[in-house]
Amino acid sequence: MTYLKRLPRFEYLGPQSLAEVCGMIAGTSRDEVMLLAGGTDAILQMRRRERVPRRVIGLKGVAELDFVREQADGGLAIGAMTTLRTLLASPVVGRRYDLLRETAAQIGGNELRNVATVGGNIAGALPCADMSPALMTLGARIRLSSGRGDRWLPLEEFFPEFGRTVAADDEVLAEISLPPPASGGAGTYLKFHDRHSMDMTVVGVSAYVVRDERSRTFGDLRLAYANGAPTVFRAKRAEAVLRGRALTEEGLEEAAETACAESSPRTSWRANGEYRLELIRALTKSAIRQAWEKASSRQEARP
């Protein structure tokens, strides 16, 4: 019985700065060293003995990675150690990145959101992670730091395969950066799960619509999925189906069908692949429609 097990033995380090973290992981391998952010998944991985690190590096003391700030270009910068609670409470997130607030509110309960971090949600590379699809549709870029310096890459290039990221063993996810919200843009995250937000997502869909006000068509559409495939991914062919078109039932149907063709959901005890495809079809249509309606009502509400 896993739940009765104690954690495997490890040595613990509690660095206070990003530079210290980079120094500590330089030249180490992921088998020996594990980063622990909120720990809400890392601790369970150790309890199940999926990871048995010799050394654990706790990031809770690295205050410089805990921030949410507006950038000069009107975009947003989020530190990897920002908790989901901090994200939810952030005024700028509520005002300008409603999709993020909506997504974070659907993850776990207070006890989880008070410690789980945005960085841990992404870097864990779980196909069911909810923040990753929302951030992808917002055009997120991420900053990886190491003793060798920093590099930036689009979040959509972060997950090469199930459970893995392209980060090297000596790299830490430090920051997530979002472009300014598009004018006429609005997003919705819909997920299906058993027990309110307390259970892992069966399928999640993030839809971000940019509505062209004059032509009343989709200026842009971005779709990303949790548990639609072995990794979180963007369904770019489905996105292309609706661009330049008005909202119609047939268009939605076609986009949802294309998204299903791009997906490869797995079968597990939670749900079989066919059922997940049904969810992808249904949630894709609802998410696009809801995002479109949000975008429209905002344009109409403007003076």
Binding site: Y3, Y12, G14, L44, G109, E111, L112, V115
Partner: peptide, 27 residues
């Protein structure tokens, strides 16, 4: 449960509710 599902282990850290089964004492 020992895995963040049930809430019986809830304590407050700096006034905020957390699951103490998912929190290292050193931290």
């Amino acid at each position: 449960c020992g895995e963040g599902q049930c809430g019986t282990c809830t304590v407050l850290i700096d006034g905020k509710a957390v699951n103490s089964c998912l929190y290292l004492a050193v931290e």
